[in-house]
Every structure is written in structure tokens, then in C-alpha cells.
Design a protein around this nucleic acid. Structure first.
Lengths: 214, 214, 214, 214
DNA sequence: CATGAATGAGAGTTCATTCAT
DNA sequence: GATGAATGAACTCTCATTCAT
């Protein structure tokens, strides 16, 4: 499905507003005003407000596809290095698309799910789990990773920690007296912190390396 | 602030609906219908829809107060035991009030925050961080906990993992072929899994014990 | 029809609010709050909001009765003196019950009249016209008043001027730089001005005296 | 500010209803029904019910502007002739826009004034007083008008008498047995009566002419 | 192809009144 | 006799969408 310039523009405005005010809390008039278009354009271009958020998911989901497949194919990296790169990739992806992942989080919290969106999310998760499974299994076979790793929960911790960090970043800023930092500086700071934190957790939880180190 | 039986009933219905459909996505007529009361009752009892969600936060926040203070005061427990009990307490609390914590999560995701609610959340977090800080510091002083623990991120991982697990429980059920389990059974299963998983992470990340054990 | 203390209290509050915000613009809750009583009291004591304004008219109309009859019976006064006293009486009555006459004015402006109130007003006017008619006729017979006086229009001018003066008193104050005066002082000032003004008009219009004077 | 045909139509319906039932007593549904439009049109075209009445004042106020300025510029007329023409102009204006001046009267009676409307009224009055002032002063300078004329009160009498006559026209009709007359006939009759009556009052009160005549 | 006008449904809230006590 | 709880209707306004052009 291809979208023209105007549609992309609408989608981007909608993405920001849906993230800030929620889907139901955002009116098509809000979107139209921010995007500087006529209200009827949303229905005209997408059919309905519902279809607009579906379009948003289409665009963002397609974008995120086939980005991670490459990590695994690099044969020069150790499994742990791959895990670390993967962690950084997820951090970058989530932090770089906070609006979108905010909407996705909301959508997951919702009981009244739009099938198309649910399908998108489900597929994305399956793919992520599958990729990670390949990665972990390879590590286990070469003996550097523990057996009995609950992949589902590890993924939950990875995504959950990042999502929670994004959702509560204002609080984190306040608690750690980082209010002097600019938005950009703080984003970089938080990414770095999350990276170290999550890699540490994964190393300790997943790998056997620390046995040797200590 | 005290609420009568009818008000409590309305709050409970509202809690469920706000969790399922979001605040903006839930109309006062939806609530009235579910609670089998007249639409005007919401304004009558709470003043407005906005005030209703504030009342909800008042009730739930008051409930959760002074539940955890007791853990720390038990002098027979080791710091790690306290951390483990604390983890289980948080899991029980979040999983036992999924609706409410769903709403709280949504509220955090929102840019347009209700001041009263934001204040509630901020205060709750400060209290949690402060409590955990006491706990961790005690462990560090007795030498069983590592230095340089980022408490903010540890808390983020704890709450983030549980929240993510709750938000994606349907997916988790599907992935792990647990669809045969009843809702109740699955809740118990998930709690157990989360407990083991998070305790493991905390033990590995926070304590020095594994040096000796291994 | 007799009203108890509480009813009188409600009527007085209602009178002020109806004057300030209009009948439709005043809610029974406004009245109840100002009168410091329960909302249901209005219906309880008067039957309905509609009946309340009727009660108000009952009370005020009864009060104003038989006040003017005495003027005519004083045989020591000349017809013109009687007219002048009558003018002052009307000024005092209207200015002293501005709230009530405000409501009466509004009621007259309304197309959707309450029959009982309309009847009250109609009866009051008939009485006033009849009284004045006696007065004027006596003056005409004794030769001091002109023939061909349009009593209806003279009354219209009398009441119209006073009502207009009351309605536009803020403007009059501003125009004549009287804003330094206290409310009470200004009321006295305006009464005096109206008295002189209207007496002058009536003298010139009604009596033959100025022929002699000049 | 320009209004399209539909807006003008709505304004006209609103004018009549506001005059008949008051602003608060008229619902937007009433207006919509009478104007045969959808309820939402009022908000759509004017923003709100409040803005609708402001629009009404905008329209009517603009209309009445620069109508009277011409009277003064005619150099062939004597001051008294000018006053008489001015009286007829005011009668025509008020009687020809009874609905609007009814609303204006109500607005003046209200304590809770809409600033924009109050400003309109204030400005209109200032203009009228200023114009009349020019007229009277010229007459005084040429010796045909008395000194010491209270312009404010004269204006009050002029407008007050006409407004009162309009407000009580049903009563006047009844009192003078004019119920056989059609509405139109009665309007003409009343205009004529008011004209003679007010001109007489003004002549007697304002001019010195009658000194000579008698 | 794109637009602004227009719509009916539904939003949250307030209304005058009634009911049970 | 008096009250506070509760009601259903009505309020103004905004919603997503459709229509005519």
C-alpha cells in the first residue's frame, strides 16, 4: 500500500496527536487543523479515522521490517555481541519512534482492539521472538548461553523496561536532577543508561561468561 | 475523602471501562449503563467525568498506601529476602489491580495530564523509590549488595516488565500454548513466572551472592 | 394568600436573582443556594418555579395596593399638587422596588406570558389609569387642566421614563460624571432629577397654569 | 464582519425568539426548528449561542449607523423641525425593529451583561446623545431652545416612552378599544399617536416658542 | 480530484421536579 | 413537615462523516 505526500503528512500529524492525546481523545478536526488541511480530507484519503490509524500502523510496521534480519547474518560477531547489538537496535527503534510505540502501547492496553492493528502487532512480536530464538539457540549450542532461558519473559523485560523508561522519562529526569539537560541531551543520556543497564541484565541472565570472569 | 456505596460502585465500573476503552473512549453513558444508574448520576456524585477519574485515583492510591512499609521493618529478613518479598508484593499489586494500573499506564503515556492524577503518580513513585532506596542501601552497607546500582532503572525494569507482561499476556498465552488454562490458572502461572524471572534478574544484578554460590 | 417566613425569604432571593439574570436564566439551584435552603424546597413550598414567580407577584402586588387611593381623598390639595404627589409616589415605588419592576418589565417584554402574572399587571394598570383618570377629570372640570389629554400616553411617558432611567442608570452615571457618588447618594440624586423632570413635563403638558405664570 | 444568507436567516429567527422568550428562555433547538435547520448549525455558523446574539447585535448595530447623521446637515430646517424629524426617526427605528429593541431592553435590564453587547449599546447611546447635543446646542445658541435642558433625561423620556409603549401595546389596544384594528393599522395608529405626543412634550419642554405663541 | 458546507448522532452537563424517608 | 437522594428530560456543543459541487 502506497501513500502520497499529503497522506504521509496527515499520518505524521496523526501519529503525534494520537500519542499525546490517545486515539479517542484526538478528533479529526485536531488532525486537520495541525496538518493544515480540510477536515473532510481524512475521510477522503483514508475512509475513516479508524482506517487512518490502520494506515499509520501499515507505514510504521513496514518501515521496521527487515532491519534486524541483518544482525544475525554477520558471522564475525559472537552471540553475546549480537544480543548487545540487538538490544541497542531495539532501544534506538523504540526511542526513535516514541510516538508510534506510545500508540502501540496504548493499543495493547486496549480491550477493544482493531483486528488489523492487533494482527500487525502480533506478527511483529512473532518475528522478534523468532529472530531472538535463533540468536539464543545459536548461543546455547556454542555453550556461551545458559539453557532454560524464558525468551518470552526476556523480551518482555527488554521491551517493558524501554517502554516504561519512555513513559516515565519526565519522572526519571526529575528524580535524577537532570532537568538542566536539553531534550536531545537527555535522550542520548537515557539511551546510554538503558543500553548499559539492559546489556548488563542480559549478560548476567543469559550468558555463562561471568562464571569465567569471576 | 469518603465515598458511599453507590459512588464505589460507579468507580469500579468506570475503572473497568477506562481500562478497556480509555478515558476519552468511555462515555458517561457507557458507565451509567454498565452501572445501571442514570447518566446524570456521574455529574451528581462526582461533579464531572474528570472528577470521577480523580476519585478513582484517590481511592486506589489510598488503598495502596502503607502496604509496603511493613516489609522493611521485619528485622528477621535478609536484604535479599526483603527484595524478593518486595518483588512479589509489586507483582501481586499490579496483577491484582490490572484495570487500575492499565489506566495509570495510559495516564503516563498521555501528554495532556490531569495535574491531580500526575501528582498522585509522582508521589507514589517517590515513595516507592525511597522505600527501595532504604532497602538497597541497607544491603550495600552489610556488603551483600553491589555498589553502583541504578535504582531508577531497576525500578523501571521491575514495573516495566510486569506492565509489559500484563499488556501482552494474550500474546504470551498464545506463544507458549497456554490457551487451555483458565483465566485464573493463567494469572497464577504468569505471577509465578514473573516472580522467578524478576527475582533472578535482581539477584544477579543487585546482590553479590552468586559470587560465592558459583 | 399568606406566606411563612421561609417562603418570604425564598421569594426575596428569587426576586433579586430573577431581576439580575431573568426568570429562565435563574435556576432553582441558584435560588436554593443563595437562600441557603435545599433545592426541593422551592417545589415543596410553591409547587414549581413558575408558581414561585407568581407568588412573588402576589406578594408585591398586594403590597402596592391601596397606597395611592389616599392621595385623591385629600381635599386640601389642588389637582396639580395631586399629580405631583402621584408622580413622586410612582418614582418612589419603582425606584424602591427596582428588582421587582425589572421583573415586571421583563414579563411585559415577553410574548410567552404567564396568565396569572399578566392578569396582575393588567389589573394594576387599569387601577392606575382609573385613578389618574379621576384626578385628571377633576382638574379638567375645574379648568386647571387641558382638555384632550391622552392619559394612556401620559402614563406611558411617566412609567417609561422611570423604567428607562432605572435600566440605563449606569450609563446616566457615566455620562454625567457621577461615578464618585455612592449608590445611595446616586439613587437620591436620580429620584430628585426624575421628579423635577417629570413634574415639569406634566405641568407643561397637562395644566393650563403656565399660561398664567408666563 | 459579513454574514451569508443562511446566517442572516438564523439571526432573524433568533431575533424574534430572543425577543419573545428571552435569551436564556430560547434554546438552540427552538431556533433550529423555526429556521428549519440542523441544531448543530448554530454552533457551526456562529461558534456558540452566545456568539449568535453578538452577531445579531453586530448586524443590527451596523444597520442603524449613519442614519441620523444626515438630519443635522440639512441647513434648511429649523432646530425644532430637526428635533421633530429626529423624534419620528427614533419612533420608526424602534417600532420598526421591535424585536431587536426588545432584546436590547432585556440586555439592559440584565446584571450579567455580555461585554461585547454592552459595548455596542454604550457606543450607540453615546452617539445618540452626542448628536442630540449638537442639535440642542444649535437651537440654544439661536435662542429658540431653552437653556438648562437635561439632555440625558430628555433622551430617557423619548426612548422610555417609546419602549414602554411597545412593551404595553397590547394593554394600550385594550384600554382604548382598538382591538378591531389590524396589527398593521394599529402600528401606524400608535406611531402617529407617539409622534404627536412626544413632539408636543419636546416642544413644550425644550423650545421657547410657546411663550410667544401664547 | 478536492473541497467546504452541512448533517445527525452523541458527547458531558444542568435542569426542574419527585421520591422515600 | 422537611429533607437529601435521585431522576429523566433537555441543554449546548462537538463528533466523524457525507454531500454537492
Amino acid at each position: 500500500m502506497e501513500y502520497n505526500t499529503k497522506q504521509i503528512q496527515i499520518i505524521e500529524v496523526a501519529e503525534r496527536l494520537f500519542a499525546n492525546k490517545g486515539f479517542a481523545g484526538t478528533s479529526v478536526r485536531d488532525i486537520a487543523q495541525e496538518a493544515d488541511i480540510n477536515v473532510s480530507m481524512i475521510s477522503y484519503y483514508f475512509g475513516s479515522k479508524e482506517k487512518l490509524i490502520e494506515a499509520l500502523f501499515n507505514v510504521r510496521m513496514v518501515e521496521s521490517r527487515s532491519r534486524m534480519e541483518n544482525i544475525l547474518q554477520n558471522e564475525e560477531l559472537t552471540p553475546l555481541q549480537k544480543v548487545n547489538i540487538w538490544i541497542d537496535t531495539v532501544i534506538d527503534r523504540l526511542m526513535g519512534n516514541q510516538c508510534f510505540y506510545n500508540i502501540m502501547m496504548r493499543e495493547q492496553l486496549s480491550a477493544e482492539r482493531t483486528p488489523i492493528i492487533s494482527d500487525h502487532i502480533l506478527e511483529l512480536k512473532r518475528r522478534n521472538i523468532a529472530l531472538m530464538n535463533t540468536l539464543i539457540t545459536a548461543g546455547q549450542e556454542s555453550g556461551v548461553f545458559k539453557k532454560n532461558i524464558d525468551l518470552g519473559l526476556m523480551t518482555t523485560t527488554l521491551y517493558g523496561t524501554i517502554n516504561q523508561a519512555i513513559a516515565t522519562q519526565d519522572f526519571y529526569k526529575k528524580i535524577n536532577n537532570l532537568e538542566a539537560l536539553s531534550d536531545e541531551e537527555f535522550q542520548i543520556y537515557l539511551k546510554r543508561k538503558l543500553s548499559v543497564h539492559l546489556k548488563s541484565i542480559f549478560k548476567l541472565t543469559v550468558s555463562n561468561e561471568h562464571h569465567i570472569q569471576n
